[in-house]
Design a protein around this nucleic acid. Sequence first.
DNA 1: AGCTTAAGCCAACAGCTGTTGACACGTCGA
DNA 2: TCGACGTGTCAACAGCTGTTGGCTTAAGCT
Lengths: 198, 198
Amino acid sequence: MAETHRRRSDATRAAIRDAARERFAADGYERATIRAIASDARIDPSMVIRYFNSKEKLFAAAAEFDLQLPDSRSIAHAEAGWALVGHFLDRWEGDDTLLALLRTAVTHAAAAERIRAVFADQLAPLLAELCDDRAQVPTRAGLVATQMLGLALSRYVLGIGPITELDRDAIIAWLGPTIHRYITARNPTDASPLTTSP
Amino acid sequence: MAETHRRRSDATRAAIRDAARERFAADGYERATIRAIASDARIDPSMVIRYFNSKEKLFAAAAEFDLQLPDSRSIAHAEAGWALVGHFLDRWEGDDTLLALLRTAVTHAAAAERIRAVFADQLAPLLAELCDDRAQVPTRAGLVATQMLGLALSRYVLGIGPITELDRDAIIAWLGPTIHRYITARNPTDASPLTTSP
DNA sequence: AGCTTAAGCCAACAGCTGTTGACACGTCGA
DNA sequence: TCGACGTGTCAACAGCTGTTGGCTTAAGCT
C-alpha cells in the first residue's frame, strides 16, 4: 500500500532533467535555453516550466550531485592522493553533472555555492579521517579543490592540448603527489620548532 | 611628421575598452551586455558598435593579455616554482584581464583559445629555458596551467572560503612545491632504468 | 459507454539582446 | 561665414529569452 503510482510523466520529467544536464554541461547556464532543452527532450518548451516551475529550479534539480567518495577505511592512506585523483577522474567522465556545475558556476551564483558545498560537505569529512589536525581540514579540502577543478577546467572545458592528451595513468602519476601533499604534508607556513629558515 | 593626431575619441575608446574588461570579468560574456558596458562608460550603446564594430571584436580588444613573465636569467632556478606562483598572483590581482578571460572562456570559444595561447606561447618558452627535455615542455606548461587556473577559479570566481582566506605567502608556500615539481621533476610515467616498480 | 483528469501542443506576452540608420551638436579649416 | 567632419544621441529593427493561459488529445476509472 501507499504504492506511488508510476505515472507516465515520470519518464518525461527524467528526460527533461537529463537533457537539461547535458545542455548545462555543454553550454553553461544562459546559453542552455529552455527551448533547446525541450527540443532535446522532444517536448514542448512550456512543459519544462510545467514540470519544474522555472529555469532556476530546473537547474537545481539537474545539478544535484554526489561525489560518491569511498569510505576512509577502504583506501590505503599511503596512496590516498593517487586514489583521490583516480576517483575524481571517474566521477568526471561518468557523469555530466560535475561538468554542468563547473560550466554554470562561473556565471551562476547558485552553481558556485553548490560546488563549494561539494568540497566542504563531501570531501572535507573524508579528509578529516585521513589527517589528524582538524583545524586544517577546510584548507586542505580547498587546496585539493584548486588542483582538481583546475584539471577539469583545463581538460574538459578549455581543452588545453597537452592536458587532454594525457591518459588516466599519467594524470594520476603527475597529480597524485600534489593531492597527497595537500592532504598529508605539514602546513608549510607553520614555523618549525627546530628551524625557522625556509 | 606622420604624427598621429591624438583625437578626443581615443579617450572614449579606451573608456569603452576598460568598462568592457570589467564587465566581462565580473559577468562573463553573455551577461556583459553592450548596454551595460556603454552605461559604465557613460556613452550610448550605439557608440560601442561604432568604435568596435561588434561585441565579438570588442571582446577581442578587451581581452588582449600579456603575462609579463620575467626572463629566465632573472629568477633563481631553485626557486622557480615559488616565483611563478607569486608572479601569477600579482598578474591576477593587478589586472582584470585574466579574470575576464577565465570567466568568458567557459562559454566562449575565442576566449578559451586565448587562454590556451597564453600558456602555450608565453609560459612554455620560459619553461623551455628552465628544464632540459624540450619534448616535455608543453605537458609541463599544461600542468602548471591546471594548478594556476584552478587556484584562480577557486579563489576569484567560486570564492571557496578557505582559499580566499589564505594570504599571499601561504598560497606561495602551499603551491610553490607543486609548480616546482611540474617544472623540474622527472616524468613520473617514465620507467626508471634501474627499477620499474612504483 | 461516458466522465474525469492528466499530458501535451500552440500562440502569445513582455522584456531583453546586438545592431543599424537617421538626425543633432560642436569644432575645426578655408 | 560657410561647409565638412568628427562625436554623440535617439529611436527602432528583428530575433531571442523565460513564462503564461487556453486548447486538444489521450488515458484511466466506473
